[in-house]
Amino acid sequence: MTADGTGRALVTGASHGLGLDTARRLAAEGWSVTGAGRRPAAAVERPVPFDYRSADLSRPETCPEVAAAAGDGWDLVVHSAVYYADFHQRPRLGFADTEEMLRVNALAPYHLTLEILDRQPPERFCSVVVVNSEAMYHADRQSAPYAASKAALRLLTAGLAETCRERRAAVSTLFLGPLDDERKRADLRAIAVKLGADEEDVTRKYLKRSNPDLVIEELIDYASCFRTIRHLRDLGRLDGGSAGSLI
């Protein structure tokens, strides 16, 4: 890590959404960033001011390849890759989609982190931030596979935190409510237009119904997520084990 607190960072899910935004912000702060995502490089929205690598994290053989990309280890790892399988649009997910959801959302960050820790130089401290979702606390017949993958991620992350207590590393969980992404915003806007209602009112009602455990009236913006990721990184360096979790 350099004198200004930056270093080598790995961000998964960096082809779009929160992962892409996080990778861009880290690069803007001076980090040497490698971003891994399923989409080909040509399909990633520009600009991409970091080393982007197309990688399918649902494949077990991908984890060693991504873990080794730094060569001499990582200072920060942010796991934000997620697979939804468009479960809201289907009456029931098939076995293959459910399995892929578990692979990407839970197994990939777990095994990738273990690979990174095994390759990490003993003198290099690594902070790992795992992005999770409060959706793990709510499940219906459509969302149950997704919620289960997030619950599995929470338990596997607890195991990683125990592993990190024996090494120069820390694992933190960032629990998120609904993000202010383009697709969710477009859906809410369409509902508002259909009902002839104010978009902010529709958003508040949606958040109250879909996230009963959160006191929240606005979608969560990417800038707030990034500030929390930096905070968790700093907590991990102080704690030296597990930095806990924040919402």
Rank of each mutant, 00 (worst) to 15 (best):
M1Q: 06
T2D: 07
G5V: 13
R8T: 07
R8L: 05
L10W: 13
G17L: 11
G17D: 11
L20R: 04
D21N: 14
L26A: 10
E29D: 08
T34S: 06
T34Q: 05
A36S: 11
R38K: 07
R39G: 03
R39P: 00
A42I: 02
V44T: 08
V44L: 05
E45D: 09
P47Y: 08
Y52E: 01
D56G: 05
S58L: 06
T62W: 08
E65C: 02
D72P: 02
W74M: 04
D75Q: 10
V78A: 02
V78C: 04
H79N: 03
S80A: 13
A81E: 02
Q89C: 12
R92C: 06
D97Y: 09
T98F: 05
E99V: 14
E100Q: 13
M101V: 13
H111E: 06
H111K: 07
H111M: 07
E115G: 04
Q120R: 11
E123M: 08
R124G: 10
V128E: 01
S133D: 04
S133W: 01
M136C: 05
S143M: 03
A144M: 12
A144S: 11
A147I: 04
S149K: 10
R154D: 08
T157A: 10
G159L: 01
L160P: 10
L160K: 06
T163E: 15
T163K: 13
A170V: 06
S172F: 14
L176Y: 10
R189L: 08
I191H: 03
D201F: 00
D201T: 12
T203D: 05
R204E: 08
K205D: 10
Y206I: 00
K208Y: 09
P212M: 05
D213W: 02
I216R: 11
L219I: 14
Y222H: 07
F226K: 14
R230M: 02
D239M: 11
D239V: 15
G241I: 03
S245N: 04
